[in-house]
């Protein structure tokens, strides 16, 4: 039976953005406080799931037209690439580089190749979770 879902859909829209920014926050917090690419990715994915639950797959796909499998592949390549950078400088695989910079607005910040690796993780996690959910959802 078809019912109207105004309340849930309206709430979902607002909450989606809250969750998404929260996820980004968790992702960046990862190196110093609990969090990181994984959790960030999973929270992002759950935000998208919320949207899908509240709306339907087709609507969400028009809002977020992403090929999640490519996203996974790109995430993997990013992670591997970050790890491989050091090989070209003669260091062992997976040697990370970081330094502290004084940036205009943010103040003293550390820039870290590990964050790039974590971004790969993030992409993979989002991609995989969404691939799974989307394919199951699409199944007859």
């Amino acid at each position: 039976m078809k019912t109207n879902d105004v309340i849930i859909q309206f709430t979902a829209k607002i909450v989606f953005f809250m969750i998404f920014f929260y996820a980004v926050h968790i992702f960046f917090a990862g190196h110093y406080t609990p969090g990181g690419g994984f959790v960030g990715g999973l929270v992002t994915a759950s935000a998208i799931v919320l949207l899908i639950v509240a709306f339907d797959l087709k609507t969400v796909q028009t809002i977020l037209p992403i090929n999640y499998i490519y996203m996974v592949a790109i995430g993997l390549i990013l992670a591997l690439g970050t790890a491989a950078i050091s090989m070209f400088t003669g260091k062992p695989f997976f040697t990370h580089f970081f330094d502290y910079f004084n940036l205009p607005i943010l103040g003293k910040t550390s820039l870290h190749t590990a964050a790039l690796f974590d971004l790969g993780v993030y992409l993979v996690v989002v991609g995989v979770t969404m691939t799974i959910i989307q394919t199951i959802g699409e199944d007859e």
């Binding site: 499998i69 490519y70 996974v72 390549i77 090989m87």
Partner: peptide, 24 residues
């Protein structure tokens, strides 16, 4: 330091990723 021993692991890994594109 010798990263050479990684290649037989990483090359298939890398190609696995590449192969995720263009599956048709």
């Amino acid at each position: 330091m010798n990263n050479f021993l990684l290649f037989p692991i990483i090359i298939p890994f890398f190609f696995a990723m590449i192969l995720m594109f263009g599956r048709n």
